[in-house]
């Protein structure tokens, strides 16, 4: 429609170049309102609140850096950092390897769309549902997982109820849910590698393994780097699976940062301190992302 008006306006339009800034702004506006209202404003307000003591129901009181001083000497906070990192390492480590394997299999072995679709199905299940299902499967007493263990002659394991198992179990549940999605992202990256590379490799007599390490992996680096950055950020923010299965327990074994923040804010109404914890998480994420970006050189490609 806009096009029709331009042609009819003809020469005059060309002389006084039609300014479509307003139209562009109008299109951007809805998204901007959302972004400002639900991202920037809460972000700024959160940073501001981290310097206050606010319990939601009484007036905001500015207390300077007290929350941060308290945080540095808070053993539960440091435990939360440790537990979160433990989670991220297991979650991302296993997930990336499995997803890469899946993606390469999808690329090199099976072209079936059905298979590709099936790999993605766990991702269609909501986090809470996935967590609930595994909570039942791995229940100490009634879970089919533990019955199987007993059946093959092993001891039952308190997957969600022992301190040693809680984080690895939760990390692996989330691997199960996310690996298909990550595999799909990596798969998309694989599609950008020209098939001629593999042809050349085959002519030179390279094995599949050799081609994987010599061609696939180096050329996939930028994509893999971005996938890692995105999934690590998501991984640091783990909350729902923990909330559903262990709510931070046993003791503090799975009290990851987000769960601790939630407890402080919504169970104890200590919004000031919870905001300070959130800012700490933001800083951790910024540092980790920056390092990842530099190390993986995700901005550059070797494909040229």
């Amino acid at each position: 429609m806009a096009l029709a008006t331009t042609t009819r306006a003809g020469r005059e339009g060309r002389r006084r170049r039609r300014d479509d800034t307003r139209l562009a702004l109008a299109f951007i506006l809805p998204a901007t309102i959302g972004l400002v209202m639900f991202y920037f404003w809460p972000l700024l307000r959160g940073i501001y609140l981290s310097f206050t003591s606010w319990d939601l129901l009484s007036p905001v009181e500015f207390i300077g850096g007290d929350n941060y001083v308290r945080m540095v000497s808070d053993p539960v906070f440091w435990n939360a950092v440790r537990v979160t990192i433990q989670y991220v390492v297991i979650n991302i480590g296993v997930q990336t390897v499995v997803a890469l394997l899946l993606a390469v299999l999808m690329q090199r072995l099976s072209q079936s769309t059905l298979m590709r679709g099936l790999v993605l199905t766990p991702y269609l299940v909501s986090n809470v549902v996935a967590a609930l299902v595994f909570l039942w499967i791995l229940d100490f007493q009634l879970g089919i997982g533990n019955q199987l263990l007993e059946w093959i002659g092993l001891d039952r394991i308190g997957f969600f109820t022992t301190e040693a198992w809680a984080i690895p179990t939760i990390a692996l549940v989330n691997v199960w849910r996310h690996m298909g999605y990550t595999a799909l992202l990596i798969f998309a990256g694989l599609q950008t590698i020209p098939p001629t590379m593999y042809e050349a490799g085959r002519i030179d007599g390279a094995s599949e393994t050799r081609m994987f390490f010599g061609i696939t992996l180096p050329l996939l680096r930028p994509i893999l780097g971005l996938v890692l950055i995105v999934s690590v950020i998501g991984s640091f923010q783990v909350f729902d699976t923990v909330a559903v299965t262990t709510s931070g327990g046993p003791v503090d074994a799975s009290r990851v940062l987000q769960v601790y923040i939630y407890d402080k804010a919504f169970a104890q109404f200590d919004f000031g301190y919870a905001s300070a914890l959130s800012v700490a998480l933001l800083i951790i994420l910024m540092v980790v992302t920056f390092l990842q970006y530099r190390i993986t050189r995700a901005g550059q490609t070797d494909l040229s």
């Binding site: 100490f140 308190g158 262990t246 046993p250």
Partner: peptide, 13 residues
């Protein structure tokens, strides 16, 4: 320990 009550492992949170 006496086996008269379920361990934490079994009941969880």
């Amino acid at each position: 320990d006496k086996g008269f009550m379920a361990p934490f492992e079994e009941v969880g949170t």
